[in-house]
Design a protein around this nucleic acid. Structure first.
Lengths: 256, 256
DNA sequence: GGAAACTCTCTACAGCGTAAGCTATACTCG
DNA sequence: CGAGTATAGCTTACGCTGTAGAGAGTTTCC
């Protein structure tokens, strides 16, 4: 249905772009009309509004009033552009309230998790981008890593445990947020709420689903469907999982 | 760099395909040379070997000795084909050892998590596919849901908590397995180990990374880099996170 | 012997990322 | 000031994508 793009450009070029190296500000030829950051901003707007599938070099160029090829004077290729988009939006969380302001590591980790989740919800295309080749270490990504680590510093954990805890939380957020993003996307694409969607396919499913073969799924599925009437379900699942994980981390810290 | 595909075909057609409805075995015209399952198998081979980016209708058709358009007599489109691929590979875990054979819910959940993880590693394209529009409820997906739930049945959890626990584990697996998949992909694509890759970019990073601004990241990053020499890192992170999550669930069950 | 149902092919279209080569611009230097 | 040169942006082109539409060839039913 949709065609998606992953990141993963030439690491060297990406790193140079992200850190503004070789910005040897050319003096000869015509004035550049754009900047890499500006191009990335436009690209992010497109991806936010219509998904990664709708992001093409031509679309970005059109929006800037130039041809597709002229973007290649600023950016070596689409993959590197996505690398820049990624580091750019990660920067958004850095200007929000600092988790360090929270009292206690639990509140700090929870805030980090929720900030990440909000970021994914604002930029759903991140789910497809981060899924890829290896971290492109932009300045914002490193700053976020540092910030995340500070939330669990000085608790008696080893450095390695700190790294593992931060990884655990961000892995969970990534996995869990998918559900919420999907739900919103269904609603946007079909104009129907999650609930309506299920009701529509229920007859077909009932014809096909054998409750005797899968009694547990039948029972729990029905209970789950009835309990949270879909709209708030992903939020509740996210908070539930987050609390379990924090409990698990607490158990670790208590031992340390 | 790579072009990826998400699932998300017409739900009705997908469900019909997956459950073999409307298999009203046509009697009139020429004998069909293929089956949907056979086409999906070939498509899975391509995606396994070369990634979702390399999966195109023409590639699949070529491998079967027909033109691209002839696939459309079996399958309404690429999206629905991917739906079938998805349910097909989920079926693989169902023939492995039943987690129910394990003593204790901890061992059962751990086995489920590791089986899922292995599935993702065998079929890395799953990471891009599952990330999408809403569950296409094929027979194998439902059977797996049932199996997962049985691992935590009868422990005093409510039905809804059972659903949430299963969701938590599978969300985490999805999030955590990305790292391992990425690492393998880097090694496959570049022919370099993760370690070599880092060594290669270390000089550039050092020039750009300000340790004074991010002391925690500098300290922990160095410790983490030194401790697990990359190759086994994702495995260890996965097991670490899994144990924390199981601890958190244990805390919940103890209360129930 | 039609007619209907079916598989499969060919052609075509709009879109993609980007390589190659060109022109127009704006600076540096003699 | 004029020449030289580096740069921005343009045009064209290639091979790839998913799939719509029309038609050819095959099998079975009435």
């Amino acid at each position: 249905m949709t065609t998606e793009q992953t990141s993963g450009g030439d690491p060297k070029r990406s790193i140079e772009l992200l850190w503004g190296l070789q910005d040897s500000r050319p003096k000869r030829g015509p004035k550049p009309r754009f900047t890499v950051a500006g191009i990335a901003r436009v690209a992010i707007e497109i991806a936010d509004a219509e998904g990664l599938a709708a992001l093409s070099m031509r679309r970005v160029a059109d929006k800037l009033g130039v041809t597709a090829m002229s973007l290649y004077t600023y950016v070596p290729g689409k993959a590197e552009l996505i690398d820049v988009m990624l580091d750019t939006v990660i920067g958004e969380t850095l200007v929000e309230e600092d988790p360090a302001a929270e009292e206690g590591w639990r509140a700090r980790l929870a805030r980090i998790a929720r900030q990440s989740r909000d970021l994914y919800l604002r930029h759903p295309w991140l789910l497809q981008v981060v899924t890829t080749v290896r971290p492109v270490l932009g300045p914002n990504m490193i700053a976020k890593y540092d910030r995340d680590l500070r939330a669990v510093d000085g608790l008696g954990l080893t450095d390695i445990e700190m790294d593992l805890v931060v990884t655990l939380v961000s892995d969970y957020v990534h996995g869990a947020v998918r559900t919420a993003v999907e739900q919103r996307q269904v609603e946007r694409d079909t104009g129907k709420t999650d609930e309506q969607w299920w009701q529509e396919w229920a007859p077909l499913l009932e014809k096909v689903f054998d409750a005797d073969r899968h009694p547990t799924a039948a029972r729990v599925g029905a209970a789950a469907g009835a309990a949270y009437n879909a709209a708030a379900a992903p939020d509740r699942a996210f908070e539930f999982g987050l609390q379990r994980i924090l409990d698990g981390i607490e158990h670790l810290i208590a031992r340390a």
